[in-house]
């Protein structure tokens, strides 16, 4: 067992873990942050996407120890209390979720995309979410949601 210290969604945590546990396992099984989904287990679908120091990674193939001393943001870290984050609200308003299992991953990929590029073209959006698979929606409403979120964030920024 090894000590892992990290900041998750603004709170410092200290855990004893197996060195080969993945970040997804630690978030889900040890911290109960079930919003991070495991769908492929090999970094090929994006459902487990979280941010480490703002960078989007697939937590299912990220050794948890890599988060040692870092800031981790999960889907649970986006909304404040009951209020949805602008991106989450845009997914609601665009009906961008069906079964919803891929949704947290798409939202976290969107967060990273819009943080880096607040004014993306539709093509930029498609490339930004091309690491995430969805089996339900055909992606169009997801692309719409990202575009809507970008627009609203820009409006918010201007206020």
């Amino acid at each position: 067992m090894q000590t892992l210290e990290m900041n998750v969604n603004g709170s410092d945590v200290r855990l004893e873990i197996h060195p080969d546990e993945t970040l997804a396992e630690v978030l889900r099984d040890r911290l109960g942050l079930i919003g991070t989904k495991i769908a492929c287990g090999e970094g090929e679908c994006g459902a487990c996407t979280v941010l480490i120091d703002g960078v989007a990674v697939t937590s299912c193939i990220t050794p948890a120890m890599k988060a040692h001393g870092r800031r981790v943001t999960t889907i649970e870290g986006l909304s404040r209390d009951t209020e949805l984050h602008v991106i989450q609200q845009a997914f609601v308003d665009s009906t961008a979720s069906q079964c919803g299992y891929c949704t947290p991953g798409f939202i976290m990929a969107t967060k990273a995309l819009l943080d880096a590029n607040p004014n993306p073209t539709r093509e930029d959006i498609m490339h930004g979410i091309s690491g995430n698979l969805c089996r339900c929606t055909g992606y169009y409403q997801i692309v719409d949601a990202v575009a809507l979120a970008a627009k609203r964030l820009a409006e918010e920024g201007r206020k």
Binding site: V55, A56, V57, T58, T62, A109, A112, H127, G128, G131
Partner: peptide, 9 residues
């Protein structure tokens, strides 16, 4: 390579 997340890591 892969997708954005893979390229990030």
């Amino acid at each position: 390579v892969g997708g954005p997340q893979t390229r990030n890591a």
